[in-house]
Amino acid sequence: MTSFEPILLRAKERLGLQTDKAVAKVLGLSEKAFNARKARDAFPSDKLWALAAQHPEWQLDVDYVLTGDSARQQELRRRLAAVGHGRDAALRLPPDATSSQRAEALDMVTRAEIQSLSEDEQQLVGDYRRSSDAGRAAILASVAAIATASPRSGAPLPAKSTGKPRTKA
């Protein structure tokens, strides 16, 4: 498979399209222009970025389509590695470990979990912990409202709620 083909497959998957012709159409290319790019192994990434900018409601993960690896996946791998280090420390405890040793292992796991957070998340947790009870309640309410109003990108939304084209041409 050329590099064009896996990109095309991921584009079809994320856009909910079945055919090359449908992808060409949604990218604003004629079928002939699209096929010429395909022959040159030159996916029109500029058109894909423009499409994502024109339709933010589609939550198109362009990095994933172009590379097969999204920033979110990279972040998850980094976090899993950090938590794995903490888990490894806990597993090294002997069965007859003292409460002090267990507390130290728990502290290592906690530090590993904190290190697995992005800088923004660490800032949010720190600010939350420094806040009063009223401040904490306001933070939780704000975060819940924002998260409800703008779901995360990554997984495609159902077609009926995204307004994405469902061309079968």
Rank of each mutant, 00 (worst) to 15 (best):
D107T: 14
A169P: 00
V83N: 01
F43L: 09
V26A: 05
L140C: 02
A90S: 11
L80C: 09
A89K: 07
A24G: 12
P156F: 08
G16Q: 01
T67I: 04
L91K: 07
R79N: 05
L157P: 00
I114G: 09
I146F: 06
S45F: 13
E75Y: 12
L9M: 03
L27R: 02
A145P: 00
G135K: 04
K25R: 13
K168D: 04
A39W: 10
A52R: 11
A137K: 07
V109P: 15
S3D: 13
R79E: 06
V109L: 10
Y64D: 12
D41I: 13
V143E: 09
G68W: 02
I139C: 08
A71E: 10
A144W: 02
A169H: 04
S30Q: 12
Q101E: 03
Q74W: 06
L51A: 02
T19P: 00
R10F: 00
D63V: 07
K25C: 14
W58P: 00
P165V: 13
T167Y: 12
A81K: 06
T2D: 13
T162C: 01
S100F: 06
Q73E: 04
F43A: 05
A97V: 06
S142L: 05
P94K: 15
Q73V: 07
Q74V: 13
D61K: 04
Q115G: 13
P95S: 09
I139L: 04
E121A: 08
G84C: 01
A145K: 02
V143N: 01
D127S: 06
P156S: 09
A53P: 14
E113I: 15
A145W: 02
T110G: 08
E13K: 06
D96M: 09
W58F: 00
F34I: 03
Q54G: 02
K164C: 02
P151S: 15
P151W: 14
G126V: 14
S70A: 08
R37V: 10
A89W: 10
G86P: 11
L157T: 06
R77Q: 03
P95W: 05
S150D: 15
A90L: 10
Q101I: 14
A159D: 04
A105W: 04
E31Y: 13
Q123A: 09
G84N: 02
T162D: 00
P151D: 15
R136E: 01
S150G: 09
P158E: 05
D107A: 14
L66T: 11
T167A: 11
Q73N: 12
A50W: 06
A81Y: 15
L51D: 01
P151K: 10
K160V: 11
R136I: 04
G86D: 05
R77G: 01
R79P: 07
L106S: 12
